[in-house]
């Protein structure tokens, strides 16, 4: 399924490039109001049309990509940074009270969907993009902990690990030097999946007002603004929605492609 990998990487790169490009160039100033130009449908002047304040939708989508990618990427970083060490520790001390505590803690965090975490944080500190990052990040921790633990457990049974132990290496060093490099592929694939889920979650949170606040452009916020105007200006809702779908679809295809490409079992089966 090399096709998935290529198509997915192409779509994801497109969005990433748009986000990076928006730092130096957008067709128009994304925040510039121009009431006479309001609610234009897509055309040669404004490729994606304009919103109810006459702002250029194409520029807003480009800058919005920045918000989505930043939130989802940092959230994946939090999930990996905390989840992987927890999972590796649990695997290294399999069956101990530490393993039990870590895994039960994971189950507990799993019971808090990211929107619930976001609601709690917002109730206490008020809304903002940082809340969305924390909420999605916390939700990612048990995901990575489980994947890391599951994969590490089977490695601990292998002979090369035994050899490392005989050589006198402790569990922490073995985890870092031998286990981690061997599960990196799996973590990358999971990271891609969580990245795409993060994009969806960020859109949902900012749609209900728990994420990025105006004037920061975000796709979810654009959809919330579009809701009351969808009957006479459907492009306001259509375009941010399609941006989300293209990004998520691209990342998912890339994740699937990477998994097939990196998983030796499938490669052998195909050969």
């Amino acid at each position: 399924m090399r096709r998935n990998l290529i198509l997915g990487t192409a779509l994801s790169s497109l969005v990433l490039l748009a986000a990076l490009l928006s730092f130096v160039w957008t067709p128009y100033d994304h925040a510039a109001l121009s009431i006479p130009d309001k609610l234009q449908t897509p055309g040669p002047e404004h490729w994606f049309g304009t919103d109810h304040f006459g702002r250029d939708m194409f520029s807003m989508i480009m800058v919005g990509a920045r918000t989505s990618i930043a939130v989802a990427l940092i959230a994946v970083g939090i999930g990996m940074g905390l989840g992987v060490p927890l999972g590796l520790t649990a695997a290294a001390r399999k069956g101990s009270w530490l393993d039990e505590v870590i895994m039960r803690g994971n189950d507990l965090v799993f019971a808090f969907p990211s929107i619930i975490i976001a609601i709690l944080i917002t109730a206490v500190f008020g809304a903002g993009a940082v809340n969305a990052i924390i909420a999605i990040g916390i939700f990612n921790i048990p995901v990575f902990a489980r994947v890391a633990r599951g994969a590490a457990l089977s490695l601990w049974e292998r002979e090369f690990i035994l050899a490392a132990r005989v050589a006198g290496k402790g569990p922490a060093r073995i985890s870092a030097e031998h286990i981690l490099p061997n599960i990196a592929n799996l973590l990358i694939v999971q990271g891609t999946i969580q990245f795409s889920l993060g994009i969806l979650a960020e859109a949902g949170l900012s749609y209900v007002g728990l994420g990025a606040q105006p004037p920061t452009p975000s796709w979810g916020r654009m959809l919330a603004d579009a809701q009351t105007m969808v009957s006479f200006a459907p492009h306001l809702a259509l375009i941010p929605g399609l941006a989300i779908i293209v990004t998520v679809l691209g990342l998912n295809l890339m994740g699937d492609g990477l998994r097939d490409w990196l998983d030796p079992r499938i490669r052998v089966a195909r050969a």
């Binding site: 795409s196 859109a203 959809l223 809701q227 969808v230 459907p234 809702a237 929605g241 779908i245």
Partner: peptide, 16 residues
Amino acid sequence: LGVAVPNFWFAMMLVL
């Protein structure tokens, strides 16, 4: 495709 569609956006399209 279904996995990539945000449900609240899909909801808006259904309304439309």
